[in-house]
């Protein structure tokens, strides 16, 4: 039963108020992109045992999508941040690297 902080309405939301939306910072591939690139976008997933950047919607709250950096092995949450970004904010990266020195996430961090 996770609790995630909604960066929009500022409350700590119960998992039952939230809808999970899978891996964050996917780059949409579309017409003109290769089959491989399209497969990458739709199906290939980091699925890390460890830090995971992911999407959540405060579905039974403010309705906003936000992003979270969460550890899939310990369920620690390093931070949440608005969805309108290509990469986690510096403080979230710092929080992650404090526990996981050298951490990296594709081209986003």
């Amino acid at each position: 039963m996770l609790i995630l902080h909604c960066p929009y309405c500022g409350i700590d939301a119960e998992e039952t108020e939230l809808a999970a939306g899978g891996e964050a910072h996917l780059k949409r591939a579309t017409v003109g992109d290769s089959d491989a690139a399209f497969e990458e976008y739709l199906f290939m997933r980091e699925n890390k045992k460890g830090v995971h950047l992911e999407r959540w919607r405060h579905a039974y709250g403010c309705g906003k999508w936000f992003l979270a950096a969460r550890d899939t092995a310990t369920l620690e949450v390093y931070g949440t941040y608005p969805a309108q970004t290509q990469e986690p904010p510096q403080e979230v990266k710092d929080a992650i690297r404090a526990k996981h020195p050298g951490w990296a996430w594709k081209e986003n961090a």
């Binding site: 039963m1 996770l2 039952t16 999970a20 890390k48 969460r70 899939t72 092995a73 310990t74 369920l75």
Partner: peptide, 14 residues
């Protein structure tokens, strides 16, 4: 199933 990635072998009670 839970809808979020998880390796803990625990699930959410709800």
């Amino acid at each position: 199933t839970d809808s979020f990635n998880n390796y803990t072998q625990r699930g959410s009670f709800h």
